[in-house]
């Protein structure tokens, strides 16, 4: 176990090093710079700004400086949001995205798993076909279309839910829903097929022959086996969803990290691009690691190495 953790830690550091290096140099290949705007600054101003942020030095020197700072846990200053550090931006924006994203994952799991199991148990019957149509639709709709449709339906016509901001719990409904639909549909399909597979297994027959009730057969013997593919899917899903969706945050004007990430690329806000990228990468690596551990707990056949 400890050997496994050490090994994974080594790979994590290596992956992050590659991500940092590639992002840093690719970023400088994008034309333009942080200080260009419609009202072009004078050459003198530009030079002064570049000198202030160390952008006048050769790229490899800048990279060295950045990495040294990084080791001290300092992501640097934002070039666009005056006076704010990248650390500060991430730590204020991430909780907002994580809240909306976390809720949407909870909804997706709590709805997707029962629906998928129910469909598998009633294979070929009406509800199975009904949910099949529903989940296919859910997968086919991109989140921005879903968000727009939801706003038109519930905010414009019915006027039940507000279409922007996050002031009250009711504001969460539409963004959470538009984020949840795709994973919900996907989880229910995953769950249906793995449940069908499990229901045909010999050990289900053994359980029946032991006199176990239908309820316990389903919840004890079937669910734990059937949920494995969903766990695999959940790892990266949690990482990507918690760090925020640009589209949904843009549409619902949510001050989250996803929006910040895309904006920073548009603005060539180099330190912020680096910071959010590293944060996302580290988060994905962490989630995959957690998934592996959970997998081992749920299925003892899995060997960690």
């Amino acid at each position: 176990m400890s050997k496994f953790i050490l090994k994974r830690l080594g790979f994590a550091v290596l992956t992050l090093a590659i991500v940092i290096t590639m992002t840093f140099f690719l970023m400088y290949l994008i034309p333009g710079g942080p200080f260009l705007s419609e009202k072009a600054p004078t050459q003198a101003t530009l030079d002064a700004l570049n000198a202030k942020y160390g952008l006048d030095q050769p790229v490899y020197i800048q990279f060295k400086n950045y990495v040294v700072k990084l080791f001290e846990g300092d992501f640097g200053m934002s070039l666009k949001q005056r006076g704010r550090t990248v650390n500060d931006i991430i730590s204020t924006k991430f909780p907002v995205s994580a809240q909306v994203g976390g809720l949407s994952i909870i909804v997706a799991v709590l709805v997707g798993i029962p629906i998928g199991s129910y469909a598998a148990l009633h294979r070929g019957k009406f509800w199975d076909r009904f949910f099949n149509v529903l989940s296919t639709t859910g997968i086919a709709f991109p989140s921005f279309v879903m968000a727009t449709v939801l706003i038109v339906l519930f905010s414009v016509y019915m006027k039940i839910f507000p279409s922007y901001g996050l002031e009250a719990p009711i504001n969460y409904v539409l963004p959470v829903l538009s984020l949840a639909v795709y994973p919900m549909a996907y989880i229910s399909r995953l769950m249906r097929s793995s449940m069908l597979d499990v229901l045909g297994q010999d050990y289900m027959r053994t359980a029946r022959a032991k006199g176990v009730s239908q309820f316990r057969i389903l919840f004890k013997h079937a669910l734990r086996n059937a949920v494995l593919p969903v766990i695999t899917y959940l790892g990266p899903l949690i990482a990507y969803t918690l760090t925020g969706s640009f589209v949904v945050e843009q549409i619902f004007t949510i001050p989250g990290l996803g929006k910040e990430f895309i904006k920073s690329i548009m603005n060539r806000d180099y330190p912020l691009v680096m910071g959010t990228t590293i944060f996302l990468a580290a988060f994905v690596i962490l989630m995959n690691f957690i998934v592996d551990i959970v997998y081992k707990i749920v299925d003892p056949r899995i060997k960690l190495n």
Partner: peptide
């Protein structure tokens, strides 16, 4: 009924199956 049968299965009458590799729950 199914409920009554459950009390008999595994109790008064038991069964062993053909393939022991798949007859036990792996988890």
């Amino acid at each position: 009924s199914e409920r009554e049968l459950r009390k008999i299965r595994g109790n008064e009458v038991s069964i062993i199956f053909q393939d022991p590799m798949t007859s036990l729950n792996p988890v």
